[in-house]
């Protein structure tokens, strides 16, 4: 195709943004335009804006759905599996970053290799919903759970959703050579963080894992005990919060840590510690 032809064609594609936003393209044209969108940031932004405008037209159409529809949908949902979107993670790899050793002079034990720290470094909302799902999926409601437990899980899930919904929510994860690690999604404005441990298994001899908030020149503050694999919602974090650490403690937890941390993670990349 001639250069002029190419230019004309591109011009032509640009002009399809409004029809596309209104779903007014034929199937083949729609596919071509979507292909074009993937390589045209300007068009993608424009289409997103026009799409928001088009959705406003739906404001005037709401009407109560037939009652029978609800039963049919809920029944179908009970037997329908969900897609997992984890592979869509747009996490950007960054240079490895070492947690600062605010825990005293000795390095944490049990580490033979430098842990890999992966930081998303971008607001969670713009990164991807997948990061949120790492946490959300841990709450996948199992059919055999009791009602009480369901309620407890739901209220925790809400607390987690609260952190995730914060406009400044950010995620950071750290993993050692054996695949054990800690994941944190935190919101500096809410002063809250969702903390998950992975790959550690059950602590030995009825002991528990306790989460600590580390601040310079201040005693560690307990943020709670981990129960199995469920995430902890840590509250009351502030700008002086430099890192989180996990220790193994006797059943019931301790007032102050009694041993070296098994894992420690700096909060700097999630908006704290400055």
């Amino acid at each position: 195709m001639s250069i002029l032809g190419t230019l004309l064609r591109r011009q032509d594609l640009h002009s399809l943004a409004a029809p596309y936003a209104l779903d007014a393209l034929e199937a083949g044209e729609r596919r071509r335009f979507e292909k074009h969108l993937r390589g045209c940031a300007r068009c993608a932004a424009e289409v997103r804006e026009l799409g928001e405008d088009a959705v406003r037209l739906a404001w005037s159409t709401a009407a109560p759905a037939p009652a029978a529809l609800r039963e049919r949908v809920l029944a179908a949902v009970r037997t329908t599996a969900q897609e997992q979107a984890m592979d869509r993670t747009a996490a950007r790899e960054h240079a490895p970053q070492l947690p600062p050793h605010v825990w005293g002079a000795q390095p944490p034990p049990g580490r033979t290799r430098t842990p890999r720290t992966r930081s998303l470094f971008v607001p969670l909302a713009t990164a991807t919903a997948a990061a949120a799902l790492v946490v959300a999926s841990l709450f996948a409601v199992q059919a055999h759970r009791t009602e009480d437990r369901l309620d407890a899980e739901r209220s925790r899930a809400r607390e987690i959703a609260h952190v995730l919904a914060a406009s400044d929510a950010r995620a950071v994860t750290s993993e050692d050579a054996r695949g054990r690690g800690i994941g944190v999604i935190a919101s500096a404005s809410a002063g809250e963080a969702v903390v998950t441990l992975g790959g550690y298994g059950a602590p030995p001899g009825g002991r528990v894992r306790q989460l600590w908030l580390m601040r310079p020149r201040v005693q560690p503050r307990s943020l709670g005990l981990f129960a199995a694999d469920t995430p902890l919602v840590a509250k009351g974090l502030d700008a002086s919060s430099t890192s989180l650490a996990v220790t193994v403690e006797p059943a019931g937890g301790s007032a102050q840590p009694t041993g070296q941390p098994i894992v420690q993670l700096t909060l700097k990349s999630v908006g704290f510690g400055e």
Binding site: V77, R78, Q82, A85, A129, A132, L133, V135, A136, S137, L138, F139, A140, V141, R154, A157, R158, A161, L164, A165
Partner: peptide, 8 residues
Amino acid sequence: LLVAGGDH
């Protein structure tokens, strides 16, 4: 987000 985690 909760629905994505399987919350009925």
